[in-house]
Design a protein around this nucleic acid. Structure first.
Lengths: 134, 134
DNA sequence: TGACACACGTTATAGCATAACGCAATTGAT
DNA sequence: ATCAATTGCGTTATGCTATAACGTGTGTCA
């Protein structure tokens, strides 16, 4: 998925996520953008849908929240590698995004063996980051 | 987590999930139990919380829905093994629950290396099951 | 220029989850 | 025995998450 130039709303939403060091819910984003003229959830959700499509952000299923993709453009969004995993600190909210070929491959093998056709894979580890666990 | 005898509400909710061949949302469960006297979402959510605690059911984060644990009691609920993964068919709704030590181990290694203390890990593959992909 | 695609704005509604109150039953220590 | 603590239950109200359905404007391009 090649990302065309972002529209105004898409840019605003992306910037808010990019500046945040923790995941944000759609409604939190909405509140953050009231001053720029946002009034309704759909304005946020529509932008989020596109940003997800472009691979610029991720949705964290276990939080119903969104984060900017932490990979450099060259790594992630133009090349589009496999499944990404997230480690989510339940204390400070920090999210680490990483990719593990072995895990990816292993899950792919399972799917192949079962005849299952994967469309999207979610891997989220919730716990305490090193700083918070100390 | 040793499961004590289930209360009436817990049994009702568990039975509904057990008989279903697809995940169910809390509100769907509620509707299914109106005839048995259920009136409010909390009655369902409280039962679900306990069943999750006992390891008798799982929550599918990407669906906001619940399924009965498909492992035999002796496998899953009394011994309490590691992380479970789910393959969710987006066509028929069927869910396959499986465990993969290699994946588990690999994610554990990542965590250890990063000093991250995992509490709960979610792995969900959405796609098409063999029957629906054919 | 007219059909199409797409972004946008608005209102309303649907779907998921919990807070806060009070009551009843159980347990267990004193 | 009895009091305190715990647990489950029922109810009302509320909050958070997400989408349906409608209409508008704008740009593309055959």
């Amino acid at each position: 998925m090649i990302a065309p130039a972002l529209t105004k709303n898409q840019s605003l939403v992306f910037d808010v996520l990019n500046r945040s060091d923790a995941p944000m819910s759609a409604y939190t984003i909405l509140d953050r953008l009231r001053d720029q003229g946002f009034r309704a959830p759909l304005q946020v959700y529509r932008a989020l849908d596109k940003l997800l499509e472009f691979g610029l952000i991720h949705r964290l299923e276990s939080l119903n929240a969104f984060v900017a993709c932490s990979h450099a453009q060259s790594d992630c969004c133009s090349k589009g590698h496999g499944t990404v995993a997230f480690a989510i600190c339940e204390s400070c909210g920090h999210v680490s995004e990483f990719h593990d070929h072995a895990v990816d491959h292993r899950l792919g093998d399972w799917a192949k063996q079962k005849g299952f056709k994967p469309a999207k894979t979610t891997i989220e580890i919730r716990g305490l980051c090193s700083a918070c666990a100390a």
